[in-house]
Design a protein around this nucleic acid. Sequence first.
DNA 1: ACCTGAACACCGTTCAAGT
DNA 2: ACCTGAACACCGTTCAAGT
Lengths: 176, 176
Amino acid sequence: MPTPERTSLAAILAAARELLEAGGPAAVTMQAVAARVGVRAPSLYKRVRDRDALLVLVAEATADELAARFAASGSSLADLGRAYRAFAHEHPEGFRLLFAGDAAAERMGLAVQPVLHAAREAVGGEHALDAARLLTAWATGFVSMELAGAFRMGGDIDAAFEYGLERIAAAIGSGR
Amino acid sequence: MPTPERTSLAAILAAARELLEAGGPAAVTMQAVAARVGVRAPSLYKRVRDRDALLVLVAEATADELAARFAASGSSLADLGRAYRAFAHEHPEGFRLLFAGDAAAERMGLAVQPVLHAAREAVGGEHALDAARLLTAWATGFVSMELAGAFRMGGDIDAAFEYGLERIAAAIGSGR
DNA sequence: ACCTGAACACCGTTCAAGT
DNA sequence: ACCTGAACACCGTTCAAGT
């Protein structure tokens, strides 16, 4: 006899993301997620294979949201760089998940497109990939270090980011 | 009545690092560490506060080893960049731990010195910090993305690293 | 002084039984 | 068809008891 669904994958995913940002990966337990969506832990396994799969879904959802943010931001490399950093500040735990595991390429596929486009615009098709990687690697490292508290000595971190952005743009601009 | 010690903090730390590289953070359980040093899990608590503290010790030991590697490598920014990447390839899980949590600055203090020195050499004291951060952020991001499988499209990753190294050096070199 | 078994709380996961 | 309690395996951690 059919029973109405008492939750959904979307609700589970949202609950997991909230718990993640509130308390880090350790806080996203199956029991906590279940409680948040009003169900018992075993029921989650109807929608999600296991906890690891749920975390992968969170990473993918985060990457998709980043892609949407890129689409709504300015389209220069500098604009994209700033949008990337702002996004990381708003979802630090989700951001960390983006480069966990070893399937970053797949889940970042969508988000990478605007960056490649901006790089082509700036430097031409031939070196667009190199340019996109240069900016992306720098921005990813900058934000990772910032989130990890690695910049506690220096003064104005915002200024340091802008300085780097300018330098990277110059490095890219000088063709090759 | 005194009892001879059957293990040591050094042995525990070494066991944790081996388990970490072999199977990721999930593999470093207190039981696995204890088994590896020939003791029962509860005994570990004589030397280590808890599992989190053990992981912090692993991160610190990894940072110290990186500092030693820097000391033994060439002293140009390019040399340090290559040494950094090689180290990350040899200890990918330990490398990931370096920027976990929020105390990266403290544990990286030693390792950062040679980079600051090289930056001062390259660009003078006034902009040394900016230059060091630019290179470090880029290299950190590059390696993180590489380890996360984010570079699966492009061709030669070694060449991409050298290309970036060259570009970053140029960006830094153009004074300010 | 260090080590251990036993115990406790907590978590992930499975599954038979409910509706 | 989905949900649940019960159960199991496993883990972190504490502690009284051993030597």
